[in-house]
Nucleic acid binder design. Structure first.
Length: 200
DNA sequence: CTGCCGATTTAC
DNA sequence: TAAATCGGCAGA
C-alpha cells in the first residue's frame, strides 16, 4: 500500500488555506492488520488569535487547549457532549493556537473495519440511512475510524496516523469547494459569521 | 468542590 | 424536538 503523506511544512502555513486545501485529502489510520482511509469533504478553521469560537481564543490556555499551541501537524482530539470525539489538525508554528476540524468525509479504504467500529455490523447489513450517515459528521467519522483521545497530540508525520494527498489505487477528485458559516458556534458572537467552513 | 455547558448524534 | 452523557472549565 502506497501513501503520499503530507509533510511537516504543509501544516505550518495559513490555517484558512490549509482548511480549504484539506478537502479531497485523506485521513489515514493504520491498525495492527487493517487500514482505514477517509476522503475529507468538510472542514472548519479555528484560529485562537481572532476567533471567539476557538477553544484557545485570546491566549486561553488550559490542560486541554495547550495542544492547540503545539506545532502544525499535531493532532488535537477532544471529547464532547459526553459521548463523541472530534479530530482536528493543529496548524501554524508552535505557539500559535490554530487548528482545522475534520467535519466530514467518505471512507475510501477499510469500509468493513469501519462499519464494525461505527455500527457494530457488517457493511452489507447497513440500511441506506446508515450508509448515508456513515461519516458525515465530526463525531461520526471519529467513531468510524476508531479515533479517540489516546491519539491526542500525535504527530501526523507518524507511520500509523497521517494525512495523504494520494493513495495508490484511489483516484483523486477535484471539487467545487463551498464556503459557509461554521456549525454550532452560536455563542461566538461576531465569529459565528466567519465563513470558515469548507465543504463540497 | 459544585454546577453548567458543549466545534454532536440519534431517537422519538 | 429533545434526550443522552460526562469531561472541561469557571467560580466559589
Amino acid at each position: 500500500m502506497d501513501f503520499k503523506k503530507l509533510e511537516n511544512e504543509y501544516y505550518l502555513g495559513d490555517t484558512l488555506s490549509i482548511a480549504k486545501d484539506l478537502i479531497g485529502k485523506y485521513l489515514v489510520i493504520k491498525k495492527e492488520d487493517s487500514v482505514i482511509a477517509l476522503r475529507i469533504l468538510e472542514t472548519e478553521a479555528y484560529i485562537g488569535k481572532t476567533d471567539k469560537a476557538c477553544h484557545a481564543y485570546n491566549g486561553k490556555s488550559t490542560e486541554r487547549t495547550k495542544t492547540l499551541y503545539m506545532k502544525g501537524g499535531t493532532s488535537y482530539i477532544y471529547f464532547i457532549y459526553g459521548m463523541y470525539y472530534c479530530m482536528n489538525v493543529v496548524t501554524e508554528k508552535e505557539g500559535e493556537a490554530a487548528a482545522v476540524l475534520i467535519r466530514g468525509g467518505e471512507v475510501v479504504k477499510g469500509i468493513e473495519e469501519a462499519s464494525l467500529l461505527r455500527y457494530g455490523k457488517e457493511f452489507s447489513e447497513l440500511t441506506n440511512y446508515q450508509v448515508k450517515n456513515f461519516s458525515n459528521g465530526p463525531g461520526k467519522l471519529c467513531k468510524a475510524m476508531g479515533i479517540n483521545k489516546s491519539l491526542n497530540q500525535t504527530s501526523l508525520l507518524s507511520d500509523n496516523f497521517f494525512i495523504a494527498s494520494h493513495i495508490a489505487g484511489i483516484e483523486n477528485k477535484s471539487y467545487d469547494i463551498q464556503l459557509g458559516k461554521r456549525i454550532n458556534i452560536d455563542y461566538a458572537e461576531e465569529a459565528r459569521d466567519f465563513l470558515w467552513r469548507f465543504f463540497v
